[in-house]
Protein backbone atom coordinates (compact mmCIF):
# COMPACT_ATOMS: atom_id res chain seq x y z
CA UNK A 1 0.00 0.00 0.00
CA UNK A 2 1.39 3.39 -0.98
CA UNK A 3 1.63 6.15 1.54
CA UNK A 4 1.74 9.93 1.42
CA UNK A 5 4.06 11.28 4.09
CA UNK A 6 3.28 14.70 5.53
CA UNK A 7 5.85 16.38 7.79
CA UNK A 8 4.78 19.29 9.96
CA UNK A 9 7.13 21.41 12.10
CA UNK A 10 6.55 24.27 14.52
CA UNK A 11 7.37 27.59 12.84
CA UNK A 12 10.99 28.65 13.44
CA UNK A 13 9.93 31.81 15.30
CA UNK A 14 7.58 29.90 17.62
CA UNK A 15 9.11 28.55 20.83
CA UNK A 16 8.95 24.74 20.78
CA UNK A 17 8.61 23.71 24.45
CA UNK A 18 8.70 19.98 23.64
CA UNK A 19 11.86 20.26 21.58
CA UNK A 20 13.38 22.35 24.35
CA UNK A 21 12.61 19.62 26.91
CA UNK A 22 14.15 16.93 24.70
CA UNK A 23 17.15 19.20 24.19
CA UNK A 24 17.52 19.42 27.96
CA UNK A 25 17.37 15.62 28.38
CA UNK A 26 19.94 14.68 25.71
CA UNK A 27 23.07 15.96 27.50
CA UNK A 28 21.98 14.19 30.68
CA UNK A 29 22.20 10.92 28.71
CA UNK A 30 25.60 11.80 27.29
CA UNK A 31 24.42 13.16 23.95
CA UNK A 32 26.31 16.43 23.96
CA UNK A 33 26.73 16.67 20.18
CA UNK A 34 23.47 18.50 19.46
CA UNK A 35 23.00 22.25 19.75
CA UNK A 36 19.20 22.23 19.74
CA UNK A 37 16.16 20.07 19.07
CA UNK A 38 12.85 20.88 17.46
CA UNK A 39 10.00 18.39 17.56
CA UNK A 40 7.46 18.07 14.77
CA UNK A 41 4.84 15.64 13.50
CA UNK A 42 4.83 13.03 10.75
CA UNK A 43 1.56 11.80 9.23
CA UNK A 44 1.31 8.70 7.03
CA UNK A 45 -1.74 8.75 4.79
CA UNK A 46 -2.27 5.28 3.32
CA UNK A 47 -3.68 5.02 -0.18
CA UNK A 48 -5.42 2.06 -1.87
CA UNK A 49 -3.56 1.62 -5.15
CA UNK A 50 -1.49 4.29 -6.80
CA UNK A 51 -0.91 7.84 -5.56
CA UNK A 52 -2.27 9.98 -8.38
CA UNK A 53 -1.74 13.72 -8.81
CA UNK A 54 -5.29 14.23 -7.52
CA UNK A 55 -4.57 12.25 -4.37
CA UNK A 56 -1.34 14.16 -3.81
CA UNK A 57 -3.18 17.44 -4.30
CA UNK A 58 -5.79 16.32 -1.76
CA UNK A 59 -3.02 15.37 0.67
CA UNK A 60 -1.47 18.83 0.28
CA UNK A 61 -4.84 20.44 0.92
CA UNK A 62 -5.43 18.27 4.01
CA UNK A 63 -1.92 19.08 5.23
CA UNK A 64 -2.55 22.82 5.01
CA UNK A 65 -6.13 22.86 6.30
CA UNK A 66 -6.29 20.11 8.92
CA UNK A 67 -2.95 18.47 9.70
CA UNK A 68 -1.27 21.79 10.45
CA UNK A 69 -2.27 25.13 11.92
CA UNK A 70 -0.64 27.82 9.75
CA UNK A 71 -0.44 30.19 12.72
CA UNK A 72 2.03 28.00 14.60
CA UNK A 73 3.19 25.32 12.13
CA UNK A 74 4.65 24.83 8.65
CA UNK A 75 4.03 21.90 6.33
CA UNK A 76 7.64 21.16 5.42
CA UNK A 77 7.03 18.31 2.98
CA UNK A 78 4.35 16.18 1.33
CA UNK A 79 5.96 13.18 -0.35
CA UNK A 80 5.03 9.74 -1.69
CA UNK A 81 6.50 6.56 -0.19
CA UNK A 82 5.90 3.63 -2.55
CA UNK A 83 5.07 0.16 -1.29
CA UNK A 84 7.95 -1.48 0.52
CA UNK A 85 9.96 1.70 0.64
CA UNK A 86 10.71 3.80 3.70
CA UNK A 87 9.54 1.28 6.25
Amino acid sequence: MARVIVDVMPKPEILDPQGKAVNGALPRLGFTQFASVRQGKRFELEVEGEVTEEILAAAREAAESVLSNPIIEDVVSVTVAEEGADK
Binding site: P10, I14, L15, P17, Q18, K20, A21, N69, I71, I72
Partner: peptide, 17 residues
Protein backbone atom coordinates in the same frame (compact mmCIF):
# COMPACT_ATOMS: atom_id res chain seq x y z
CA UNK B 1 -12.40 29.22 18.60
CA UNK B 2 -8.84 29.93 17.42
CA UNK B 3 -8.88 26.77 15.29
CA UNK B 4 -12.13 28.00 13.65
CA UNK B 5 -10.39 31.38 13.12
CA UNK B 6 -13.22 33.22 14.88
CA UNK B 7 -10.35 34.45 17.08
CA UNK B 8 -6.74 35.01 15.96
CA UNK B 9 -3.58 33.38 17.29
CA UNK B 10 -3.20 29.95 18.82
CA UNK B 11 -2.22 28.18 22.03
CA UNK B 12 0.92 26.06 22.39
CA UNK B 13 2.30 24.19 25.40
CA UNK B 14 3.06 26.21 28.51
CA UNK B 15 6.65 27.47 28.31
CA UNK B 16 7.58 25.52 31.47
CA UNK B 17 5.90 22.33 30.13
Amino acid sequence: LTETHLLPGSMIKNNHL
